[in-house]
Amino acid sequence: MTSEVTTKQAGAEPEPPPQQRKQRREFVNALFRFQSLFGLVAVFVVAVVFSPRHNGELLFLNADNLANVVRAMSEIGIMAVGMTFVILVGGIDLSVGAVLGLAAVGSAVLMVNDDFGVVATVVIVLAIGLFFGFLQGMASALFGIQAFIVTLAGMQIARGLARIWSGGQGVAIAYGDGPGEAPVTFSLLGERTFNGIVPIPALIFAVVAVVAIVFLRTSAFARHVYAIGGNEKAARLSGVPVTRVKVIVFCICGFLAALAGIVHAGQLNQGSPNDGFGYELDAIAAVVIGGTSLMGGRGSVVGTVAGALLLGVLNNFLGLHGVDPNVQLLVKGLVIVVAAGLQRLRPTV
């Protein structure tokens, strides 16, 4: 019996046409990829529907209020864009809040105490941020120390430098032409443009975001970034300059944190060494809500921008209703958990 060769035809049962199946899979994937966009729309709708009213006007939709939402979020947003790059290669940067503080202090001190012009100040401060990122990137990539640890140390160092540089106190920025006064141009950062509608910081955020989105979609460098996050060993063997890419990514992140610091100083008209305290967590939250995987290799700046705006709308909405700030924290925490949980449901390969 066993020596007999039996052959039967493979059964040919009907299956859903592959085309249809694939479309469905792609659709589900898109849902998850842009979860923060949908989340943003949802939160926005809720904010509109439940907006407090004043003389029949929806306070949330008031132009000033909306401008405030984006203005308030622009610093976190700018940082979160840089953070997206770092997280895409599988790293993390805990120092961005402290670098923001350092940059804010630097802006104030350079203009007020050292009489630097706006251009020189901005260039120097951005260079400091970039260099700071460079050092962290080198320490992490070249010596193989985990980014978490390197930037944890970097956070302390940046904070310390900011304290030393400012003498431990906030440096107020007064505008004028005299000595000890900052050029008036710098105060533009606190203003609005386009008929007084769009806050300048939001404009800067938008420019940063658009550049980053285009860059991450089309550049060869971005391919390397994703490849490293996806499988670092494979990327290295495929000729990706892993160390260089990682260092550059930290440079980008430090640079953008410094840019956020300049914006911060311009809005508050001062630079204090405690500025940006805890901002790194908001930036990471924006990235996570935006659907970027902390393991690296998967995510987008579009998601991050939506994630940042979602946090902004949420803050504003809760603020309008006078919700206790501590409860606001709770809500924010829940949103992060839900966002991260949703990513777990995302179909993987």
Binding site: F221, G230, G239, G297
Partner: peptide, 25 residues
């Protein structure tokens, strides 16, 4: 391989900077 990335991204990984013009693919 980077298993969750596309066939295309995996295939061209070693030559992306060669086929790029001014850094863009």
């Amino acid at each position: 391989l980077s298993l969750e990335h596309s066939v295309a991204a995996n295939t061209v990984l070693s030559i992306v900077d060669r086929i790029a013009t001014a850094g863009f693919v």
